[in-house]
């Protein structure tokens, strides 16, 4: 079943002569439980695609359907709520709230949603991501790898249908990177989640189920990884 589908997705920055087409009529689907790696050179439109798929930006043209719902028909408020319930984000620079502890950061999307926190689930997440002993620490007291694991836990906290990761290990050294990625993979397998991840690292890409390559705002290859 397709969990995510984009139709004719385009994004143009600026207008007139200085306009830049960051994304050109991209059609793209992701199946439930799939791990898709998006690769491409710098400026190829990877991040734009991810932002549009995740409902962070509005496309110039085209649609994004998540669970068959056209997310850009939603109002700003509903889109926000949709994001916090259905989508998880992991950024390169973690983007944790500095005044909140690790655990508070993880539960923030739930709190914003006014939901009761499933402590067992959160503890399990913390254990899975091996940050249980750091849960009361502030981000400033955590290492980069730990911060990213907190960010992963935050993305998983609401049990979203799909997770978008924008070079989640771009800021980490290779040893930590593989550790974090392993944990990410374990987590999404464990909780049956779908993952769309941008990466520069071919080795990382090869661990995905499928690799999509972008160039000049277009998908130039879409290959299933044979393991």
């Amino acid at each position: 079943m397709d969990i995510l589908k984009s139709e004719n997705l385009s994004k143009t920055y600026g207008s007139g002569e200085i306009s830049v087409d960051a994304l050109k009529n991209v059609d793209f689907t992701v199946k439930e439980g799939e791990f898709v790696a998006v690769v491409g050179s710098s400026g190829s439109g990877k991040s734009t695609l991810l932002h549009l798929l995740g409902g962070l930006d509005r496309p110039t043209n085209g649609k994004v359907l998540i669970n068959d719902r056209d997310i850009y028909t939603l109002k700003e408020r509903d889109l926000s709520i949709f994001r916090r319930r259905e989508i998880g984000f992991i950024f390169q620079f973690y983007n944790l709230v500095p005044v909140l502890t690790a655990k508070e950061n993880i539960t923030l999307p739930l709190l914003l949603d006014g939901r009761i926190i499933d402590n067992d689930y959160i503890d399990e997440l913390l254990s899975t991501l091996k940050i249980k002993d750091r849960k009361e620490h502030l981000p400033s007291a955590l290492s980069g790898g730990q911060q990213q694991r907190v960010a992963i836990a935050r993305a998983l906290a609401t049990k979203p249908s799909i997770i978008f990761a924008d070079e989640p290990t771009g800021n980490l050294d290779s040893k930590i990177s593989s550790e974090v990625l392993d944990l990410l993979r374990i987590s999404i397998k464990k909780y049956h989640q779908t993952l769309v991840m941008i990466t520069h690292d071919e080795e990382v890409a090869k661990t995905a189920d499928r690799i999509v390559t972008l160039e000049d705002g277009k998908i130039i290859s879409n290959e299933v990884v044979v393991k």
Binding site: E76, S80, L108, L112
Partner: peptide, 16 residues
């Protein structure tokens, strides 16, 4: 600004 952007990314509504 960036922090607020992130908060919005993880689904804080404008009202919140």
């Amino acid at each position: 600004t960036r922090e607020f952007g992130m908060l919005r990314a993880i689904g804080i509504t404008n009202k919140q």
